[in-house]
Structures are given as C-alpha cells and as structure tokens.
Simulated assay, not measured.
Amino acid sequence: MNFEKQLNLRSGEKCELSGSIDHLEAYQVQPSEGNSADDFILITQNLKDQLEGKKEPVANDWRCLNDAMWSEVPAVKVIAYRMLHKLKEEGWPNDLLEMIYLDDQELSWAKSGMEDEDAVKHIDSNGAVLKAGDTVVLIKELDVKGSTITAKRGTAVRNIRLVQDDPTLIEGKIDGQSIYILTQFVKK
C-alpha cells in the first residue's frame, strides 16, 4: 500500500485539518524522513500553500485547528501546534495553545520545525532577513574607520557573517579587508 492510499484511508479522504474534500494533497511534516505515511498529512491545496509560504497565512482558514489539535495523528498535532504559535498574535490561538497536548516526542518534533522567535535577526535596509553566507550590496558610500578605504555604493559584499549579539551588524570583506557594516546600509 503506498502512502497516498494510507493517507486517504486514515483521513477518510478529507483534509486532516479542515475536513474539506476539495483539492487534497499530501504534505510532508518536516523535519522527517518521509519514509512512511506517519510523516505526512492530507490537506487542502490552500492550507498547503500557506504552510509552504507561497501564500500569507489567513487566520480564519486555520480556525479548524480547534478540532484538529485533538487528532490522534502526531503529524496533525505537530502542524496544529506550529500554526497556533505562528498565529498567536490573533488572540484566539493562545487559548488553544494552553489546551493542546503533545507528548515529549511530538513536542520535540513540533519545535524542531519552527523558527526560533527569540533568535537575533539581521534585517537589511529593505526588511529582508540576512543569513550567513549571503551576498549584499552597499546602498551608500561608506568610509571604513581605521583605514583609507572608501567602500563605494553598489559594492557587493560576498559571504557575509552575522554578528551574533548585535542584529545591526554584519561582517564582510571589501578589498580583502574584513570590516563590520551596519545592516541599514546594505540590501540583499
């Protein structure tokens, strides 16, 4: 029996979150091996697009989590937990987060696939999140302190490093010299 047949049998050919029967697709709950049906849930294309970031999450589309969070399927509970956390500014998910129950293994799985909200985020001048190894471009001519170098506007800085304790600074090389650059003066 392949995964799709197992998913259809387990879900009754309905979205395991919303109960809808339209445009159903298998969604692999990361991080997982994808070796069994237990690593997947059957969901609508709309919810899948929101989970994958192809669409912005619409809070009302996720009100179905009120019922889905009580599922016996660990992958369904993991997705419910993650989305409730993602939408907690809406207010109503906070009540559900207080009620949801995940055993230690499920909670570990749920947290391993979530972004760390408390992590320091480096943001460029356009609001894009910078990651180590990115290439950025200077948006302003900058005088490099302690040197005679002037970094010209439009200069590409490759393979940047993030300053872990300061979200306003990155480190990169210009003309072979390592320098610190304020994130407000770069764009991805």
Rank of each mutant, 00 (worst) to 15 (best):
K5S: 12
Q6D: 12
Q6T: 15
G12L: 05
K14Y: 06
K14W: 01
C15K: 04
E16S: 05
L17M: 12
S20I: 00
I21G: 00
H23F: 07
L24I: 06
Y27V: 08
Q28P: 01
Q30T: 05
Q30G: 03
Q30D: 06
Q30N: 05
E33K: 13
G34S: 09
G34T: 05
A37K: 03
A37T: 12
D38A: 15
F40Y: 15
Q45N: 10
L47K: 04
L47P: 02
K48L: 04
Q50V: 01
Q50P: 12
Q50S: 06
Q50K: 05
L51S: 08
L51Q: 02
E52C: 03
K54G: 02
K54H: 13
K55I: 05
W62H: 06
L65C: 02
N66V: 12
D67L: 03
M69S: 04
E72N: 13
V73E: 15
V73H: 15
P74E: 03
A75V: 08
Y81E: 04
M83W: 09
H85D: 11
K88V: 11
E89H: 10
E90T: 00
P93M: 05
D95K: 12
L96W: 15
L97R: 02
L97Y: 10
E98M: 08
I100L: 11
Y101V: 13
L102Y: 10
D103W: 09
D104C: 10
D104G: 03
E106V: 04
L107S: 03
S108C: 06
A110H: 03
K111F: 06
M114D: 11
A119W: 00
V120R: 10
V120F: 00
V120E: 11
D124V: 14
D124W: 02
N126Q: 13
G127D: 08
V129G: 00
A132M: 07
T135V: 14
V144G: 02
G146H: 14
S147V: 04
A151D: 02
K152Q: 15
G154N: 09
V157N: 09
V157Q: 09
V157Y: 04
N159W: 03
N159H: 10
V163T: 07
Q164D: 10
E171K: 08
K173Q: 11
I174E: 03
I174V: 15
D175P: 01
D175T: 09
I181Q: 06
T183A: 02
V186S: 04
K187G: 08
K187V: 15
K187H: 08
K188L: 15
